[in-house]
Design a protein around this nucleic acid. Structure first.
Length: 456
RNA sequence: GACCCCAUCGUCUAGCCUGGUCAGGACACGAGCUUUUCAAGCUCGCAGCGCGGGUUCAAAUCCCGCUGGGGUCACCA
């Protein structure tokens, strides 16, 4: 069993392409087959090395490792050879330098494959008569996802095989390669359905046995239309930059048009592979939902080891100049644990954690107005003094000192909790105050309390 | 426009093949619990078979039509 993903390096890998790649990859991995990556760079003008690099990089980031890699630009002599063969057999003709397939050449034999155990009876071309009694040639195939799809062969025009510049056209290179690479099932986007009858005609003319076909529904934008850059990110690399984990992106993508069937949303890849079946892929297009992706990502962050998150965060921390490679791992883990439950993406860490890396802190203006307007200098001073004397500074000891003071002053704890949080973190919301103090450390906590300025 | 494909809560989906379980789950949304805040977590709730015809004792499920959505109509891939 062999499948392929065939991107064209005329742009980066977008989220729809990633899903096509994912389904191919999952099918191969679940069937013990081979996953081939074929770069369709026949358009010399538009293909760019930087796009190729970005595609390969995105694939690797997503964990979609390929077993074989081909570039069509390395295979031009092969396409030329087959075009010559068709020319020699009078199945194609020349128009200037271009080589064109005669579509008057069929009979076309409809390829058939199976779905849910049932086999369509082989179509008898002679039996297909048009209303006027003339022959009606039908091209049809049994799509693994959609069932039988039928086209009228007479509507298909002669096709260019080799362009005037000597490069092959998409369909020609695609058919030659899928045949020579012994692809057993072509899994691709629905936008290729109307290419399929042309390609089937090509298989026939070349004397190749066609593969099975499975046409995936398309991913649509949040508002239902075509997915576009205007309405959110389309490139896989953008999701990486936004702080999504590849496992979460993959998990979300597989749920778009497919379901493991047991009411599970967070799916381990091993489970997904065990339950994977092309037949269970949906026929209808699915709207992309950033919100659900974010929820899945937050779930993955929660279940990822803190040490692993630290490893992912370190380079980003270094990039910002917040912490170099010498920054203590245990400390970093404590910090990550403080925010883990409230991170939707990796990037959220920098929003929540800023006060731990940047000095002096920036105090949110609204938080200042709301909590630092009333003068609490006296209480802050007392609190600072008492915290300073704690021999073993941690969340529990800080809390008991805090509670004692509040009781002694006869004020509600919330009257002091909120101003202190703003003083320490610059924000009016965040993790528990005493956990925050513990992670900040005694010295910085005391220092920030003493340096707080109140505006009345 | 022509051709092709598709249609279950706002969204992603289970159920459809092999008609008969209050149409199940998740995101989002709402309420409550928890609580020093905001999240997280837990509990509960809101919400759907596009419409019209058939077939049948019985239709989300099978058939037809309509409507709606999507895709393709290149010497781009």
């Amino acid at each position: 069993m062999r499948v392929r993903f065939a991107p064209s390096p005329t742009g980066f890998l977008h989220i729809g392409g990633a899903r096509t790649a994912l389904f191919n990859w999952m099918y191969a991995r679940s069937q013990n087959g081979k996953f081939i990556l074929r770069i369709e760079d026949t358009d010399l003008e538009r293909s760019k090395k930087e796009y190729l690099d970005e595609i390969l990089d995105s694939m690797q980031w997503l964990g979609l490792q390929w077993d074989e890699l081909y570039k069509q630009s390395d295979r031009f002599p092969i396409y030329r050879e087959y075009a010559q063969k068709l020319l020699g057999e009078d199945k194609a003709y020349k128009d200037g330098e271009a080589i064109i397939l005669k579509m008057s050449a069929p009979p076309i034999v409809p390829p058939l494959s199976e779905r849910r155990g049932e086999t369509s009876p082989p179509a008898d071309l002679d039996a297909n008569k048009a209303a006027d009694g003339g022959p009606l040639q039908i091209i049809k195939w049994f799509d693994l996802i959609r069932g039988e799809i039928t086209f009228d062969a007479s509507e298909i025009k002669d096709q260019v095989l080799m362009k005037s510049d000597g490069s092959p056209t998409y369909s020609f290179a695609c058919v030659v390669d899928d045949a020579l690479m012994e692809i057993s099932c072509v899994i691709r986007g629905e936008d290729h359905i109307s290419n399929t009858p042309k390609q089937l005609a090509l298989y026939h003319s070349l004397g190749f046995k066609p593969p099975k076909f499975a046409h995936l529904p398309l991913i649509m934008g949040e508002e239902g239309g075509r997915m576009s850059k205007r309405h959110g990110a389309t490139a896989v690399t953008e999701y990486r930059k936004m702080g999504f984990l590849p496992e979460a992106v993959v998990n979300y993508l597989m749920l778009l048009g497919w379901s493991p069937g047991n009411n599970q949303e967070i799916v381990k890849m091993a489970t997904a592979l065990k339950n994977f079946s092309i037949k269970k892929i949906n026929k209808a297009g699915a709207a992309f939902s950033m919100e659900k992706l974010e929820w899945i990502n937050s779930q993955y962050i929660k279940q990822t080891d803190t040490a692993a998150l630290v490893a992912l965060l370190r380079p980003l921390l270094a990039q910002r100049g917040w912490a170099d490679e010498n920054f203590d791992s245990a400390k970093l883990e404590n910090i990550v644990n403080l925010f883990k439950a409230r991170m939707t993406t990796l990037q959220d860490f920098f929003y929540w954690g800023e006060f731990l890396f940047v000095d002096p802190i920036t105090i949110d203006s609204e938080a200042r107005v709301q909590y630092l307007s009333q003068d609490r200098a006296k209480e802050f001073k007392l609190l600072g003094e008492r915290l300073r004397e704690i021999p073993e500074f941690n969340a529990a000891s800080a809390e008991s000192v805090f509670r004692e003071l509040v009781a002694k002053l006869g004020i509600a704890s919330s009257e002091l909790v909120h101003p202190v949080r703003v003083a320490l973190t610059g924000k009016s919301v965040g993790p528990g105050l005493f956990e925050t103090m513990a992670v900040l450390g005694k010295d910085r906590t005391v220092k920030r309390l003493s340096e707080t300025v109140f505006h009345g």
